[in-house]
Structure formats: C-alpha cells, structure tokens
Nucleic acid binder design. Structure first.
Lengths: 234, 234
DNA sequence: GAGGTTTTCGCCTGCGAGTCGATAACTAGG
DNA sequence: CCTAGTTATCGACTCGCAGGCGAAAACCTC
C-alpha cells in the first residue's frame, strides 16, 4: 500500500490492477494465442491469458515481462505493445480488478518449452475463455492484422531469414486469407521492409529452383505512412 | 477499498488510479488542447489535463465523462476513445498513481463556457505541463492526425454542416499543413465520408459563388480499410 | 452589365496494387 | 546426359485512386 511522500496526499481511489498478455504467433500455418488453463475458481478449467499483479517497483511493461518469463523465454518475445485497459465493474467476480493488456509477438521458428497447463490455441477456433479475455484477444488480432498492412511488424512473426514462399504462408496464416507472392515481395521490398540476402535455400522440398533468402531490414517497429491522402500540398 | 466477494481472494496489489482527458479541438485555425491551471502543489501554476479519480461504481469512460462535465458540456464531446495507461513509478511525486488517458474531440463550432482556470492551448505552442501530461498530449495529436487519413474521425471536429473551404481549413489546422480542396473533396466523397446537401451557403464573405453545404454521413467512427496491400487473392 | 471573387468541374499525370504468363533454375529419374 | 517435373522469379499489363491545374460556373457589388 503506497503512502503519500510529499505535498498534499493523493485522494483518488485505489483498485487492484493486473497485467495480461495476448501472445500471438503462427503455429502450423495458423495464427495462435498462448493460453493457460486455470486450476482454481473462478473460471476453473477455463483458458485464460497469462498475467498477474504489478509489484510496487515495476512498471506495467516490466510486470508483464516478468509474468511471461514463467511461460516463454523473454527473449522470444520480439515485440510488445500496450493494447487497452478494461475496467468493467464485475469483470472479475471476486473483486473489482482493472486490467491492462499487452500484445506480444513470437516468431514462428521459436518453440518455447511450455508448462503443462499452457498451450497455443488457434484464434479461429478459440475455446471458452475466462473473464473478459476474449475481448482482449479479438482486439489484439485486429490490431496485428491492421499493422501487418502499414508497418513492418511482420519481423516479429517471422524467423530471422526466410524465403518468399515461407513469408507468404506466414502472412496468409496471420491475415486469414490467401495472398499472392509476387505482389507481397514487391510491396515489402519497395517499402524497404525486407531485403534479399545473397544466399539461396534449397528448401529441402521436391526439387525446383532454389529460393532467394530474405530478411527484415529493421527489428523495431516502423510505420509506412498511413495514406497518400491528405499529404502536404506541393 | 473493495473486498473479496466470492472464491479465493484476489491477491494483486492495488494502486491509486486516475483518468485524464486530452480534449482536442480546432480554435482560430489551430489545433488546441483543453488545459487546466493547477492551484496546488505539486506543479502549482502549471497546466494540466482535466481528470480525476474513479469511483467504485464507475468504469473508466464514465469517470472521465463525469470529470469533463465540470469543464465542458458532455454533449459537446463528439468522440471519446481510450489512449493509453501510464505507470511510471514517480510520475506523481506524492505517490504511485496509474493514469489512463482518453482522447476527446470537440467540434469547432461549439464554444463551451470554460471555468476561469481552464483554457484552450495551441498544441504547437504548448506551455510547460504538469506530470507526464505532455506525453499524453503528443500521443493524442499523433493518433488524431493518423486517423484523419483513414477514418471518418473528422466528424468530431467539424460542425454539423460546412462548406468545402471550411473543411479544408479545419483539416489544415488539425494536420498542421496546407492541403488542396479539390482532392480533399474527391477523397472524402468517394469514400462516402461526406455528402453534399441540397443547400448552399452565401458564406457572408465578399462575393463569389456560393459554396455547396456538405455534411458527414456518419457520426460514429468508421474505418476505411487501411491499405490495398495484402488484400485477399481473387 | 462589367469586373472581381470564390467555388466547382473536367482533364491530365503518376504511382502503387494486383494479375498473369513466360522464363529461370534447380531435382529426380531414366 | 538428357528430359520431365517443380518451384521461384521476373516482366508486361491493367486498374484505381491520389494529386494538380486551369477553365468554367455562379454569385456579389458597383
């Protein structure tokens, strides 16, 4: 319970506050979310987002990073951004708890050792989830899909290096619909989001021309300016 | 202090939580934010965002709506959306206080009667602000400017009816740069964001052809799909 | 009705998205 | 070693929308 340090005391009400993470990743050609099966009431045996409380010395981002460490190696989370804060009075039947959710992304090539009660679930076949967690999941998926179109956020879903075919499959899985490899390549290279390396991959598949290996230019989020509309005159 | 109601108690720490509002509007051809001059320490005489605590019966949105009622007529706020939650340990020198900020928009034609300690400030000439409030303001301005390009959010800044010239001035002020009226009209009409009415405005100016009066089609936020990239194949 | 002012329309440019087919570059099997 | 099969990549094309400019329209005032 924090105490006033100096000046007039702060006179705003306090509430328990938790952080949650919607960790998304592409597994087996489908966009998946990391869920954890609750062992205790309420919502016993229902699937829930990983998360927990915030220590007095932690900021929200540090708190969710700490809670995730128990599930996946922290270095596996390639991107983490705040999503939203929910405040419905009865979102937790036990007491009023405010919740701030984060969106986390894990590249498709990392295969964290998950605890027994934790598993990936396809976002298009979600089980019943605990509390209001499905709202957070929907918001996270919508945000990811939107940002795939106008940012380089794909870097957080893809392996360090990949072929165009792999990237197309990755984007198709994340977006939920098929798309053409030709155009994907042109768009992402013209925007300087991806670049070809000088190597090729024999791909292990049944023959065929070896594919050029590509990589993302940056591993921090950059935005391709949203629209050509409403640009500065002249 | 809320108590456990049923099941195992919630065991996550509590923190004072406040809501803040970044209320933006175009005044005198400039994008402005509504600020309030603090009368007490800390940050005495510095400008701060309106806001306050959250009552146990209120959700965050209801709380900020209530606090805003003291400054502007609630019906004047044409759009309200959550921005972000800040959690820096010492963002308030008195105690640790979490803060959730909202973005509010007020049409340029409404002129609320402001209390004596409250005023509009141009966002390009901000005074020193209290706490971490300038971060919220920067985020709000960036969000508004981005959304002007790919949503119909202009409805919340514009009067119910307007001419193209007025709308161009409004967008120019909000975006911070000049733009052409021709293209603005075409883009917004093609997207069905604005429609012409059957009336014209003599405009009160020094002669000239009367301008067609336009209006926004919808008064709720709608999104023009973000990009043509990465569209479904076929 | 003449001159000035402002809006609006039509035509032009250009670029990026998207498609399709042709060609390149390999593997496997005779 | 040659051929058939497979996959990747490139080039040529279409199309729709952003953006600009100038001419014409529609008013006002004197």
């Amino acid at each position: 319970m924090p105490e006033a340090k100096k000046g007039d005391p702060v006179n705003v009400p306090s509430y328990p506050h938790e952080v949650l993470a919607v960790v998304l990743s592409v597994r087996d050609d489908a966009l998946c979310v990391l869920l954890w099966k609750r062992g205790r009431s309420p919502f016993r045996h229902r699937w829930a987002l990983p998360g927990g409380g915030v220590e007095p010395t932690e900021r929200l981002r540090e708190a969710i990073t700490g809670h995730l460490a128990a599930k996946v190696d922290v270095r596996d989370v390639a991107h983490l951004e705040q999503l939203a804060t929910h405040s419905a009075i009865d979102r937790d039947p036990r007491a009023r708890v405010l919740a701030t959710a984060y969106l986390g992304l894990v590249p498709s090539d990392v295969r964290p050792n998950l605890p027994a009660d934790t598993a990936w679930h396809r976002v298009d076949e979600l089980p019943d989830t605990a509390f209001d967690h499905h709202y957070f999941i929907e918001a996270a998926v919508a945000r990811l899909r939107a940002k795939l179109s106008y940012t380089n956020i794909g870097f957080a879903l893809a392996p360090p290096e990949f072929t165009i075919a792999e990237l197309r499959d990755l984007f198709s899985a994340a977006l939920g619909y098929e798309l053409g490899a030709t155009n994907l390549t042109r768009v992402l290279t013209r925007r300087d989001v991806i670049v070809p390396t000088d190597r090729t991959a024999s791909h292990g598949q049944s023959g065929g021309r070896p594919a050029t290996v590509y990589k993302f230019v940056a591993h921090e989020l950059t935005v391709t300016d949203p629209f050509a509309v409403l640009r500065p005159r002249r």
